[in-house]
């Protein structure tokens, strides 16, 4: 019994993290029907921002979480504006901005790594070349846009690699460990609960409550729900659709940023490729609960987390991933729209 309760506690804490990431997947899918594969990497960036805040700037855990949330929100909006929006409604100015920013980062990193320049010179070269690239694109390409959802999906995978390897170029490919910030354990009826776990619960619950409140009760939440049902009609009711989409990305990404710091505190380790496994698990959690449905992502996250720890605790941790994927397959066969999803029948 004690072991069972212990696994529940462990499962709930890892499940909270999955749920926080899954919320971002689900919100973005709900509003523009895009599986944002870069979302797991935004979570990774959040973990690194938290790491830098705590180890370099000696911030407290809470302010590090706040920093990571703000940074990830801005990053999420930047990704949306530079990578996805030009596919939805392309403009020459948008194309110029994309070429300039992406070009600058890539050229800067390459110049630093291969030519061994210092920051200033690499920056100058990158700025000149990316400006040239931007103007070249501006004057030669007439954007047509690609309404095909596959194009956005592949772009998302590209953004994911971009974030992973940019982070690798900046921070190095090695594992790093979080400074121990929250030691201490409480024992309740034989069940050990670390302070880190308590913190994870509290923060996750608080964020979920705030999110539910925003979505259900505020004007931006209403706009988000309206855009997800019918973007054109929402625009004709005076809702700025692009801005609503940006805010959705900001909220989803900030949740992922918080999750990044929390997982760093919990597992004490981070590396630039950590977003892949967690991102995938969180995606499964979102599909499990019904993608596009916010309570579904929360439910799915906890369910996947508890399943994992149960399998690891009673059987073998070697099987935990396999079981999670088997659950995904079973869900896709039995209830493709997810646990909380409704099977929509088209009326003819």
């Amino acid at each position: 019994m004690t072991q069972f309760l212990q696994q529940i506690v462990n499962g709930l804490s890892i499940g909270s993290i999955y749920a926080l990431i899954a919320l971002g997947y689900t919100m973005v899918y709900g509003i523009i029907k895009l599986i944002n594969f870069a979302h797991g990497d935004i979570y990774m960036v959040g973990a690194f921002v938290g790491f830098i805040c705590i180890s370099t700037f000696k911030m407290s855990v809470l302010s590090a979480i706040l920093c990571a949330m703000v940074f990830c929100a801005l990053l999420g909006v930047a990704v949306e504006r530079l990578a996805y929006k030009p596919l939805r409604n392309p403009t020459k100015a948008g194309l110029f901005a994309t070429a300039l920013v992406m070009g600058f980062i890539l050229i800067y990193l390459v110049a630093k790594a291969t030519l061994e320049l210092d920051n200033l010179w690499a920056g100058v070269i990158a700025l000149v070349l990316s400006l040239a690239l931007g103007f070249f694109v501006y004057f030669t390409i007439t954007p047509k846009g690609n309404p095909n959802r596959i194009a956005a999906l592949i772009t998302a995978i590209g953004v994911s690699f971009f974030l992973e390897y940019a982070m690798m170029a900046i921070m190095g490919p090695n594992n790093r460990s979080y400074p121990a910030t929250l030691g201490g354990t409480a024992t309740l009826a034989g069940v050990q609960i670390t302070f880190a776990q308590i913190l994870i619960f509290i923060i996750t619950l608080a964020l979920m409550l705030i999110l539910t409140f925003i979505v259900q009760k505020t004007k931006i939440g209403r706009a988000m729900r309206a855009v997800s049902t019918d973007a054109d009609a929402a625009a004709l009711m005076g809702v700025n659709v692009d801005r609503t989409i940006s805010i959705t990305f900001a909220i989803g990404s900030s949740l992922a940023g918080a999750a990044g710091v929390l997982v760093g505190i919990y597992y004490n380790t981070l590396n630039p490729l950590m977003g892949m496994t967690y991102g995938l698990k969180a995606f499964i959690a979102a599909v499990f609960g019904g993608i596009g449905i916010i309570p579904g992502a929360m439910l799915g996250g906890f369910a996947i987390g508890i399943t994992e720890t149960m399998v690891a605790g009673y059987w073998s941790s070697l099987f935990k991933d396999a079981i999670v994927y088997i659950i995904l397959i079973v869900i896709l066969i039995l209830k493709p729209s997810g646990l909380l999803g409704k099977n929509v029948r088209e009326k003819v």
């Binding site: 004007k219 209403r222 729900r225 929402a234 009711m237 005076g238 809702v239």
Partner: peptide, 11 residues
């Protein structure tokens, strides 16, 4: 809510 969304601009 359908009606309230349309008031988006002046909230």
């Amino acid at each position: 809510d359908n009606v309230r969304i349309a008031m988006h601009k002046d909230i």
